[in-house]
Each structure stands twice: as structure tokens, then as C-alpha cells.
């Protein structure tokens, strides 16, 4: 596995591997530790991307130290994850807002316009009324948590 690796490469690869693993573990721990869905969105989308980044940097360093070439596969994966993780986070947040949050409990935008995605007269097309009516009415606790 680590044939003829110089000491600095061994140490650096190990450091980045451990760093990335700790970040990934912390991100997943935050997923079960944080109290409500919008804060739960925070932990994995940031920390796990950093964890993947650490592992990919370790892989790049290893390829460079062992073969003497700069590998670009890792950059491709990093680029794809960095491009797509905000989109998935936005979609998951929208699912949470539209299906579970009471609309009148949301803060109003300053211009008086509505939130993007809500139609003017009610919930977005296709949102089932049964899931919407199970949210508590305004005045009670607006957000559901476990």
C-alpha cells in the first residue's frame, strides 16, 4: 500500500485523512444532535463537504507523491459536490417550509412580496392538503421538532 512513500507524504496524507474523517463524523453527529430541521440542514451540507474535501486532498497528495503526476479526478468530484450541495440544501429547506411550517409564522419579506414558491392564493400546486392541515394553527408553537 505505502511502498516507497517519503515521510512528509505519509504524514500529510494521514493528517488530511484524519481531518476529513473527523469533519465527516461531526457533520453526521450534528444531523442527529441538532434540535429542529432547519438547523439540522446546516451540519451535513457544510461539514460533510469539508470531510470529502479532506479525503480528496489526501488522495491528490498521495497520487502526487507516489506517481509524480497531479490527478484531476478529485477536483472534478469536489467541483461537482460544491456545485450541487447548495441546490440540494435549498430544495430540502423548501420541502420543510412548504410542507410543515405554518405560512403565517414565516417572517414577511420587506417589499411585501410573498415567499418564492408559494402561489398567491395558497399552497403550491401539488402540495397535499392533508399534510398541510396537520401543522398547528398560528398562535401555537409554529415549528415542529422532536
Amino acid at each position: 500500500m505505502n511502498h516507497d512513500l517519503p515521510l512528509w507524504a505519509d504524514l500529510a496524507v494521514s493528517l488530511f485523512l484524519v481531518l476529513g474523517a473527523v469533519f465527516g463524523l461531526v457533520g453526521s453527529w450534528g444531523l442527529i444532535r441538532l434540535p429542529d430541521p432547519m438547523t439540522r440542514l446546516h451540519a451535513p451540507t457544510k461539514a460533510t463537504t469539508l470531510g470529502i474535501g479532506g479525503v480528496l486532498i489526501a488522495s491528490m497528495l498521495l497520487t502526487f507523491a507516489r506517481d509524480g503526476v497531479v490527478s484531476t479526478h478529485e477536483l472534478l468530484i469536489t467541483l461537482f459536490l460544491v456545485l450541487t450541495s447548495p441546490i440540494t440544501a435549498l430544495f430540502i429547506g423548501k420541502v420543510h417550509l412548504h410542507l410543515r411550517q405554518d405560512r403565517s409564522a414565516l417572517p414577511r419579506p420587506a417589499t411585501g412580496a410573498g415567499w418564492a414558491g408559494y402561489t398567491a392564493e395558497g399552497p403550491a400546486r401539488g402540495v397535499r392538503e392533508s399534510t398541510r392541515s396537520s401543522t398547528p394553527p398560528a398562535g401555537e408553537a409554529p415549528r415542529t421538532s422532536d
Partner: peptide
């Protein structure tokens, strides 16, 4: 040393 780091990282991601 890299072997131990690999094992540690795999254990961390498995736990995750």
C-alpha cells in the same frame, strides 16, 4: 502510518 489513518477514516465514515 497511512494504514492507521485509512482505518481511522473508514471507521469514522462508517459510524457517520
Amino acid at each position: 502510518m497511512m494504514v492507521y489513518a485509512l482505518g481511522f477514516a473508514a471507521a469514522c465514515f462508517g459510524l457517520a
